Simulated assay, not measured.
Amino acid sequence: MEEKQLNVSLLIGNGFDIAILESLKLKYTTTYKEFYDYLTYFLVNKNNSIYMAINEKKTLETDDNWMDYELLLSELVKQKIEALERISNFQNKKKQYEVFVEDWKEIQYMFADFLNHVITPDILKQVTQLSGKGTLERLLGDLTANQYKNIEFPSKTTHYIEMDFHIFNFNYSSLVDNYFYWLFDYHPYNVSTNNFNFFPNPRSFPNLKSRYDQKTKFFIRSSMNIYHPHGRLSIPESILFGMTNDIPAYIKEKNNFNNELLQKLDKAYWARLDDKMQPILEKSDLFVIFGQSVGESDEWWWRQVIHRLAEGSELLIYDFKKNSLKEKILSYCGGSKEIKKEIEDRIYVIDFDNSKKLKYTFTF
């Protein structure tokens, strides 16, 4: 049965920003280590409790990724809640809470300063020239012959369908936005609303359900939607770090400091993931994960992907330097061997590194 509309969801993480900045041969990128170095050099208040915890962790451990920072924040919130519960005097409790919140905000603004230091307007213009339109046109190009043989998505494509691209930019910068943005005419023809070319088989691989080759080009209607579920650099206080607490509604009680700290940590709450993002993900026919570590701080997303895969969707996951991302995704199945077995053949891993470059997608 032909689909009249297809939905493709791209979940893009910090690995994208790092890769594209490195491709431009820039001096700085957006790694956690570089932020730590920036913070160490420019932060005036070295007594900031969050900075002190970051500094101590960096001294004791060699881990170097943003997930470690979010897990650290979670642990600090837990410790602060325990400390506040031991304080009986209300004014002292309030003061301790306010100091911690100000420390959090100070790091938040320093992070915004860091990103503005790394990503200048000139860099955004350079990224726009790279154009991700080709990535979307040949989205299946970097699959192997064996993978392409089994994937069902090509058989769902044909002329005149509508293909909606939903790009979830987990980063706070707009590098992803600039890469994928292009100004296309929504009505380029007098007798047609098609505005996009999609190549279902860029490498002429055989497929069990379709007979397309690299010359096949479908004229389709497309739309693009870009979301920033973790906040935007242009609004520093919108920048979210933390976990998902799975609390449907927080108790609205004045001066409940413990409750307010848990709420502040909850990315899913502030991003309204259940209300805004879940309905989009539930319609996705194909997921693309690029530049993600698939860490537990974004567990909500991986569970949504798993749920949709169990309903028949498919996933392309780009695994830089073979970090076992497929296994990480499957680890969120909640111990269900049945679901794991059902979805694992619908996950297609695209391995690449600095010596094994991508040829069709994300070719910056």
Rank of each mutant, 00 (worst) to 15 (best):
E3A: 15
L6R: 13
V8F: 10
L10M: 10
G13K: 03
G13R: 05
D17M: 00
L24F: 06
K33D: 01
T40Y: 02
Y41V: 04
K46P: 02
I50E: 13
I50H: 12
K58M: 07
T59Y: 04
T62A: 01
D63G: 06
D64L: 03
W66K: 01
M67Q: 09
M67W: 00
E75Y: 05
K78Y: 13
I81V: 13
I81W: 03
E82F: 13
E85I: 01
E85L: 06
R86N: 13
F90D: 12
N92S: 09
E98A: 13
W104F: 11
Q108T: 14
D113M: 06
N116S: 07
I123R: 04
L130P: 02
T135S: 12
T135Y: 03
L140C: 12
L140V: 11
L140W: 14
N146K: 09
Q147A: 08
E152I: 09
F153R: 11
T158I: 04
T158D: 12
Y160H: 15
I161W: 05
H166G: 13
N171C: 15
D177K: 12
D177T: 13
D177R: 11
Y179H: 03
F180I: 01
Y189Q: 14
N190G: 11
N190R: 12
S192L: 06
N195K: 01
F196C: 05
N197M: 07
F198D: 05
F199D: 01
F199R: 06
P202F: 10
K217F: 02
R221Y: 07
P229A: 15
R232H: 13
E237N: 15
F241Q: 10
I247W: 03
P248S: 01
A249M: 11
Y250H: 02
E253N: 03
N258Y: 00
E260K: 10
Q263P: 01
D266G: 03
D266F: 05
K267Q: 13
A271K: 06
D274Q: 15
D275G: 07
K276Y: 09
P279G: 10
E282R: 15
E282M: 14
K283S: 10
V288Y: 00
I289V: 15
S297W: 09
R303W: 04
Q304A: 15
R308L: 10
R308S: 10
A310Y: 14
A310T: 14
S313H: 09
L315C: 08
Y318H: 08
D319G: 03
G335I: 03
G335C: 02
K337R: 07
E338T: 14
I343M: 02
D345Y: 02
Y348C: 06
D353K: 07
K356H: 15
K356W: 08
F362A: 12
T363I: 12
